[in-house]
Amino acid sequence: MRVLITGITGPVGSFLADYLLTLDGLELFGFKRWRSDPRPIEHLYGRVTMLEGDIEDPFSIGQAIEQVRPERIFHLAAQSYPSESWAAPIATMRVNVEGTLNLLEAVRRHCPQARVHIAGTSAEYGWVEPADVPIRETHPLRPLSPYGVSKVAAELSGLQYHASYGLHVVVTRSFNHVGPRQGDRCSIQTFCRQMALIEAGRQEPVLHVGNLEARRDFTHTADVARALWLLLEHGTPGEVYNLCSGEATRIGDIVELVRQQGRVPVEVRVDPARLRPADEPILAGDNSKLRQATGWEPRIGMAQIVAELLDYWRARVV
């Protein structure tokens, strides 16, 4: 079976490739931009066939789909940072909406029997009242960022191609996923990287943080990878599934875990520059639909996530 991952250099893409390589009978292909950082996938060369192009270019993704004619496609390529979308809303729309349409058109033309996963986000839900938590897939979509809006449009595009052309499209609304190889834009990553810098004597003993009261649902990228494969094999086409742990953790409590697992004492200081123009107070998902469809459940908790990330950044800042 031929499997294609777009956005393979991203944190989920590389972990998904790791997981798929443990399965029998798969031929794995990755689609990446030529300028993407290759370090997260260096260990995959020789085991995964890499194709270069740009999801915004219909010719390059069309050529890749025609060449591979995959039977399973995981569409992870995206501008995936809400904070960046405020500074570059049009670029975010182009990557996330036009890029998804370019992929769907290529599938429709060259391999309409392929099963396609489209990665959405909990940011599509936007403002949620505490009484509506945990959030179910039937909750209204009221995104608060250009990123969230772009993902709503990408999701609806995928569902439209299922309804109009019969493509086997399954959508996930992923809540926060976290793990090594992710860079330092995610809140937990910034905390752990700062702690590693402080331990190495390269930063003053102050953890600079944003909104500590927000509560988020985090899932390790290795758990996400397992869920994606199971869902594309067992999920119902034309359906949307929350991909989440089902538990919301206060950001301030994660900071405290970083402090406890750190090797030196630190001060915690709120940095106004790290506060967003709009920030959902709580995002926690109901994952019962995913569990029922696949039997999946998360295995890695927050304490282990923090420990892994501290070790990851310690190895990179010395």
Rank of each mutant, 00 (worst) to 15 (best):
P237R: 13
R181I: 08
D253E: 15
L207Q: 04
E204L: 12
R226D: 01
S187D: 12
P237L: 12
E247G: 00
L197Q: 14
G235F: 06
E199R: 00
E239Y: 02
L232I: 14
R216A: 06
T219Y: 09
A214H: 05
I254A: 10
V224Q: 00
I198T: 06
D253M: 10
P205S: 09
C186H: 13
E256G: 12
E199Q: 07
D184V: 11
F218E: 01
V240N: 07
M195H: 09
G235T: 03
E233M: 14
F191Y: 15
E239M: 07
D217G: 02
E256C: 09
I188H: 01
S187H: 15
N211M: 06
G210V: 01
D217R: 03
R202C: 07
W229G: 05
R185A: 00
P205F: 06
D223A: 07
A248C: 05
E204G: 08
A214V: 15
R202G: 04
H220I: 01
R250T: 10
E256M: 15
C192D: 08
D217H: 02
E233I: 08
E213L: 14
A248Q: 06
S245K: 13
G238T: 04
N211K: 03
T221E: 10
G201T: 08
E247N: 07
E247K: 12
L207D: 03
I198W: 05
E239D: 11
R185E: 02
I188G: 00
V240D: 08
A222Y: 10
H220L: 03
V209H: 04
L231E: 02
A196I: 09
V206H: 04
R250P: 05
L197M: 14
V206F: 03
T221P: 01
C186K: 11
I188M: 09
H234Q: 11
L243G: 08
A225M: 06
G201I: 07
Q182K: 05
E233Y: 01
I198V: 12
A225S: 12
G183D: 06
V209E: 06
G179N: 05
S245G: 12
V209C: 06
G201N: 07
D253R: 13
V209Y: 01
F191H: 05
